[in-house]
Design a binder for these strands. Structure first.
Lengths: 243, 243
DNA sequence: ACAATAGTGTCTATTAGACAGTATCAA
DNA sequence: TTGATACTGTCTAATAGACACTATTGT
């Protein structure tokens, strides 16, 4: 903070959101099809400009999400992901974008809002591979968001945020497998999860119906940080080789 | 990114730097005494406004560091720490600050630059405790930076960045002890560090002179990520109770 | 009965934690 | 020889990884 006698050049502040969820055991990211130039017609992250000088950054993020995807996500926890401020990243001028990451439990199908032609869940791997091109530098932001999620699964209870209010241990295992792109041993996974106090708590004597033996249901426990962490296997025995 | 027909309010972009180092086995942070209003005369993090629309954020960070602290830190790696954008955090108007974290190996005593009355290394614990008050929300930024450093010591080779080009294993242990504020067992520390391939490499047959048995010198190895991580003891046996 | 999913038990190898003594220098 | 710092070895408890079987439901 220096220089009080001249006015430094100002920039527009944008917020962008990386919202991740699981659909059919695959990691998906919420994207909107842009309805206005620039990049009209291509997919982009939900987000937008700070609207007035008094608006808080996270407030702007929540507002944009509601506007563009009509998602009622008051409870959605937004975590700061990074700042993207390369001088030429937006053709309209100097835009510094603050990116947030959120994990969505279930899948309230988004509805396109005012400025977005369409809002959809898209497979994260298609974005990361470049198969689906995004506007601005949003592919990079998605990549950073996915990487953050992978890391946070290790030392935090983030995985439960991918699940609904109640879930089975198998559900939880699917989260790890989808985000990490590997296969885990159910026996070791059960043991590890069960003995990590406060990670998950039994949702008393409730069960679930499919075909096969009913499963016990659990809820997210109070513990947010995992000591010792879940360990990501070391680049071997990757059966379902995603990415 | 929406709204193309009106111009959103712009904000000033600032960069702030948390530079950490070790002096006399204690964690220190680089602060400057502000030479201009607001907060003239109080300490603050080095930093300042983006100067022109084409300037990159990290470029601005490096420039400010050179200007305010006259530190020649081309090689200093700046890591994005966070964004601080509360509407009222700066009395001059809407300022969104991008904070960076860096770890400095040795201690080239800083020289006060143009806008800073003074530039000094200050003990981090005095800042965190509130004993030394900082301008703006800089105490919070320092707190976030220190917490980040603590975490990164666990799963990255960051600790070597606190040391000079060569160092002894004891030097490295002092880094962990100072940042974590605990005491470690030298035997277990030696074993752990030695068997983590690529963490440190021997700087061949060089020694050091003090009083006592000479120590072998090492350099930072190629490994940047530590698997398995160094583990921070669990809140017990904290002999030298810092913080 | 069979299919399908849920759940458990054991053995082994590795690792962290606790702990005490030897080695090498200068004075 | 003493003081001061550098280094090393062992035992034990906890944990991860590998692996196969039993349990409970619907059809």
């Amino acid at each position: 903070m220096t220089e009080d006698h001249w006015t430094p050049p100002a920039a527009m502040i944008a917020v962008d959101l990386v919202i991740l969820t699981l659909r059919e055991s695959r990691l998906h990211v919420l994207l909107i099809e842009r309805g206005v130039e620039p990049f009209k017609g291509t997919f982009a992250l939900p987000g937008g400009f700070l609207e007035h000088v008094e608006e808080d950054l996270t407030a702007a993020a929540h507002r944009e999400l509601a506007e563009e995807a009509t998602m009622d996500v008051e409870t959605l926890h937004l975590e700061h992901l990074g700042v993207y401020g390369s001088p030429r990243r937006d053709p309209r001028g100097r835009v510094v974008s603050v990116a947030y990451l959120a994990i969505a439990p279930r899948l309230p199908d988004p509805i396109a809002g005012s400025d977005a032609a369409d809002a959809r869940w898209q497979r994260a791997d298609r974005v990361l591979s470049g198969e689906l091109e995004l506007a601005f530098d949003h592919r990079q932001i998605v990549e950073d968001g996915v990487e953050r999620a992978r890391t946070k699964l290790e030392y935090s209870a983030l995985a439960t945020a991918f699940c609904g209010p109640t879930f089975t241990i198998t559900d939880l295992q699917r989260v790890y497998e989808a985000v990490w792109g590997i296969v885990l041993d159910p026996r070791n996974f059960y043991r590890k999860v069960q003995k990590t106090d406060g990670f998950i708590v039994a949702a008393n004597q409730e069960h679930k119906a499919t075909s096969g033996r009913p499963a016990k249901l659990f809820r997210a426990g109070p513990r947010k940080v995992l000591y010792p962490p879940m360990v990501r296997p070391t680049e071997t025995s990757n059966t379902r080789g995603e990415e």
